[in-house]
Nucleic acid binder design. Sequence first.
DNA 1: ACTTGTCCTGTCATGCCGTCAGCTTACCGA
DNA 2: TCGGTAAGCTGACGGCATGACAGGACAAGT
Lengths: 215, 215
Amino acid sequence: MTGQVRTVDGRVAGRRGQATRQKLLDCLSEMLSSSPYRDVKVIDVARKAGTSPATFYQYFPDVEGAVLEIAEQMATEGGQLTALLEGRSWVGKAGWTTAQELVDGFLEFWRKNDAILRVVDLGAAEGDKRFYKLRMKILNSVNNSLADSVAELQSKGKVDKDVNPAAVAGSLVAMLAAVASHQKGFQTWGVKQAELKPNLALLVYLGVTGKKPTK
Amino acid sequence: MTGQVRTVDGRVAGRRGQATRQKLLDCLSEMLSSSPYRDVKVIDVARKAGTSPATFYQYFPDVEGAVLEIAEQMATEGGQLTALLEGRSWVGKAGWTTAQELVDGFLEFWRKNDAILRVVDLGAAEGDKRFYKLRMKILNSVNNSLADSVAELQSKGKVDKDVNPAAVAGSLVAMLAAVASHQKGFQTWGVKQAELKPNLALLVYLGVTGKKPTK
DNA sequence: ACTTGTCCTGTCATGCCGTCAGCTTACCGA
DNA sequence: TCGGTAAGCTGACGGCATGACAGGACAAGT
């Protein structure tokens, strides 16, 4: 699965090549954090990496191609998000803890990768299948786990029959992602970061179980 | 308040000028629906409008400036969203209807303006204050109404004291916006449009009132 | 030192950006 | 009817990013 890294013209990249390639990715990543996606130019990335634009095009077809690469790396890291839900209970006090830790872990992951996640989100919303699949890959682990939890509670009769587990799980995950993207925005509404988390956890808990948490 | 429309170099625009200006906006709007924001070029917009790039720059400082203009128009229309909540009740069956109609109206508005809203969302997430204010302007009406509703229920003791109305309202609105942006995405999770709405309404109702709806 | 294959860059054609001077068109008062 | 004035538009241009190529620099093994 770890296919050799190749240049655009088909050569296999050696140690040095991979290093510059990675440096370009790092610099691009950094630029995405500091300037609008639309204004990121190949020449700037190359300059920042202490190399020439031609070198950039040796490793990536275009900016978008490089972004996909970064996003791919992040997506595999994002698999860790599954751990936030694996084997967790949604019953009683434990359930409330699960909700809290899910929110915590999710926001943290988003905060760490916000620049690249913004671009992935945009690409997906614009209908680009590659970005779309990537977004799925990141969210799927959390989404599936949540949907399973809801379905299980439903089979035990603890959740109404007419609830669609996938729809609820997807909506909750979308909420987490959206809130994470606009964390700063909440400050203008007079909501502090610390207050936000428990309220988000409450919404998640309510959505999954259908009732108020026992704290 | 209806200040005269002016060109970049300060002249007041007459009938013909305003028509061209509007045509440029319309074409840009259309282009945003059909191609990625990053790839929208001034020259393409101008060609589509049957004019020259120089004309574009007579009315707008750059693409972003024109986008802001379109978004501004949309934001004022978005004031209608307030109507979805004004004077509505969150108690009993009426509450469930309120939730349903809110979801319906919100999704419809987003579907209609998805292209421009994507760009506004990106701009806001990237920290651009102008886009950020615009996003607020659109969401504020809904957000404030929701927050008020929660606060009112809270004062009557129907909602826990430790709930932060602004945080809950903001999160729910963010959820609605996010789900609307990625409506197509839910199909891949096997969720149909028609199934999505009631489940969203359920989450909204749960979030606002803290208990299951009586249908 | 020589060979081999990787790695980088100088350079170039192309195309978009953003600006300006200058031409055309519409309006208006005399 | 006739200028005069301001609005409206565009051709053309310097500047810069893009993307392709060929050839030179470099490291590693012999």
